[in-house]
Design a protein around this nucleic acid. Sequence first.
DNA 1: CGTGTAAGGAATTCTGACACG
DNA 2: CGTGTAAGGAATTCTGACACG
Lengths: 99, 99
Amino acid sequence: MSYKDQKVIGIGTVSELTGLSLRQIRYYEERKLIFPARTEGGTRKYSFSDVEKLIDIANKMEDGLQTSEIKKIEKRIKDRKVRDQMIRGQLNAAFRIRK
Amino acid sequence: MSYKDQKVIGIGTVSELTGLSLRQIRYYEERKLIFPARTEGGTRKYSFSDVEKLIDIANKMEDGLQTSEIKKIEKRIKDRKVRDQMIRGQLNAAFRIRK
DNA sequence: CGTGTAAGGAATTCTGACACG
DNA sequence: CGTGTAAGGAATTCTGACACG
């Protein structure tokens, strides 16, 4: 969509932007917390959204959370979003029927 | 300021985003049309603004303009902006005096 | 579990130059 | 003038593994 979601940033730059080591960034990917794109050659590309997410992860790690717990938290947030979206869809459908 | 002006994109990605060759992108820099940042190691980093500017340059080149002409056009636009900014400053000053 | 590190290799980028037109 | 390309080298990134705790 916007600039924010374009996967164009290399891992070195992400490291500078987040303060995380290359090792940490790759590890969080291994734990399925982050999903960079790949170039043909196989190098990772991140978006600004990814960078923000990594900063959020870094904060949670500092609070002593484990990657598995962070993943659960994110899943919960996502599920809430999906549920709200469903409700909104139902409401819209109901209103269309009345017309 | 915003994401748009952060120098975080490598030249390869810029090439994909703009359709320009690495040679062209570097040449427009040589002609002072674009000003990427550099990492410690010396690799170029561009912003989304730079990408937009390059697309604009590419369009003008297609129209048969030379880099020197494009540079002049941009200078004119910039001068106008500076002038308008000055006028605005003068107006603000005048109003402050009346108070 | 999360992260550092050395290892070897591959992908990416850099500069200066020659070529063509 | 603007761009392609081959050349040699340097910077960047990749993966899998060992280490520590």
